[in-house]
């Protein structure tokens, strides 16, 4: 379950706990941002400002790093993140049909979040589970050998 920001105190305590765990070093920046991203589902602007203050790094540097890595997001995401692997091994196993049905079922284009805030649909490069392509990952759940017929059932498991 994702956390939402209630007060300024929330921001300070979450940043503090991440920095304490990983250390206030430049090499800890990516792990710190990853942890915060996991907490909120993305990197809220006020959190980045706080990280910038605590680590004494320019905010622009943080944005430059955060926008580089696929697992970090500077925009809010839905409650559930669907990653669809679009690399060749899944593609050869008819991944395109799965992708089509995903888009149709959700009414979303890649990168979009549904109006009710439930889903965010993104394409991904290889997820490393290629023996069972096509592969989709929803939050932390991995689904392999996905067929177009299975997609509605899989989506129905999430509220």
């Amino acid at each position: 379950m994702l956390t939402s920001i209630q007060s300024e105190q929330d921001v300070i305590s979450i940043v503090e706990s991440a920095v304490t765990r990983h250390g206030a070093k430049s090499e800890s920046l990516v792990p710190i941002l990853s942890e915060i991203n996991q907490e909120f589902g993305y990197l809220p602007g006020e959190v980045l400002s706080e990280v910038s203050r605590v680590l004494n790094m320019p905010r622009s540097h943080l944005i430059s790093v955060a926008s580089f890595y696929h697992m970090l997001s500077t925009k809010p995401r839905g409650r559930h993140l669907i990653q669809f692997c679009e690399s060749a091994p899944c593609h050869v196993m008819h991944g395109r049909q799965v992708w089509q049905i995903l888009q149709d079922e959700l009414g979303l284009e890649p990168g979009q979040t549904s109006a009710d805030g439930k889903w965010t649909l993104v394409t991904s490069s290889c997820l490393g589970i290629c023996g069972v392509g096509p592969v989709i990952i929803i939050d932390d759940d991995t689904y392999g050998n996905v067929t177009p017929e299975r997609v509605p059932d899989i989506l129905a498991r999430y509220v």
């Binding site: 690399s87 060749a88 091994p89 490069s125 290889c126 490393g128 589970i129 290629c130 023996g131």
Partner: peptide, 11 residues
């Protein structure tokens, strides 16, 4: 950082 599509030996 095994990310080559189709590779999961290191994992």
């Amino acid at each position: 950082d095994e990310s080559e599509p189709g590779t999961f030996k290191d994992r």
